[in-house]
Design a binder for these strands. Sequence first.
DNA 1: GTAAGTACGTACCTGAAGGTAAGTATCCAT
DNA 2: ATGGATACTTACCTTCAGGTACGTACTTAC
Lengths: 133, 133
Amino acid sequence: MSETDVSLIPPATLSEQMRRGELFAVDCPSRDVLQHVTSRWGVLVLVALLAGTHRFSDLRRKIGGVSEKMLAQTLQWLESDGFVLRKSYPVVPPHVEYSLTPLGLEVARRVEALADWIEGNLPSIMEARKLRS
Amino acid sequence: MSETDVSLIPPATLSEQMRRGELFAVDCPSRDVLQHVTSRWGVLVLVALLAGTHRFSDLRRKIGGVSEKMLAQTLQWLESDGFVLRKSYPVVPPHVEYSLTPLGLEVARRVEALADWIEGNLPSIMEARKLRS
DNA sequence: GTAAGTACGTACCTGAAGGTAAGTATCCAT
DNA sequence: ATGGATACTTACCTTCAGGTACGTACTTAC
């Protein structure tokens, strides 16, 4: 019963820490990026942009429940991480287009894979939840 | 310049909404599950458990920065979603083991794919961030 | 002239995520 | 007998994601 033998190597060397599992370190910068990408609206923005370039209001209408403030903030996070490209046309009714960068396309695909899997397996999940509710 | 033609079909029929993109609906239950899985500690717990069964304290030590309270809560979320299996041995120093269910294994793999990609591409991301900082 | 659309910025507020600290009951090692 | 490990729970507090609402500057449509 005490055979649970799991690798619990403490930080060890720096190179070891770099090889894999820096995620588990308190100050790993990946965690910030992950937070932007997996934030409530970040997921939806990335998946939405997989369908192509969108204007601000297009995204707002497509993504049910976003406030303008949160959409703007999320887009700024993703832009500063290099995942989203913002193109602004200085015309008099403002016109701004958002699209995925090559880097953004790759994250978005992985985020979509996760989101799609959850959506597709919702029945199984809801059933599992019922058993202990 | 006004050729940005993006599919902006309003909710349409219910079956259409079911086929794909229920995620974009305000009240889609997938969003809750997604929140648990992509929560700050949810990601790390799932990836950690991919390495095998862990005890509570093992997880606490492995995942840098978690508080006991948050670890317990995250494990309960994931358990109620059917992703994590909790096995408790009624011995006198408490002994509890956490592992992934078959369902949990599948989400965890996709979460890991995302996390690994971000970790692997951190240099590119940080560089993109520098350009506009 | 008045309402609506465009892409936001800003101020204010709430609610929930998350942190800190302590308590619990029982053992084992020193 | 004192301290630490085990797996939590509870209470309290802080922080921030997120919501609501309003302002902007200009245009087109009614």
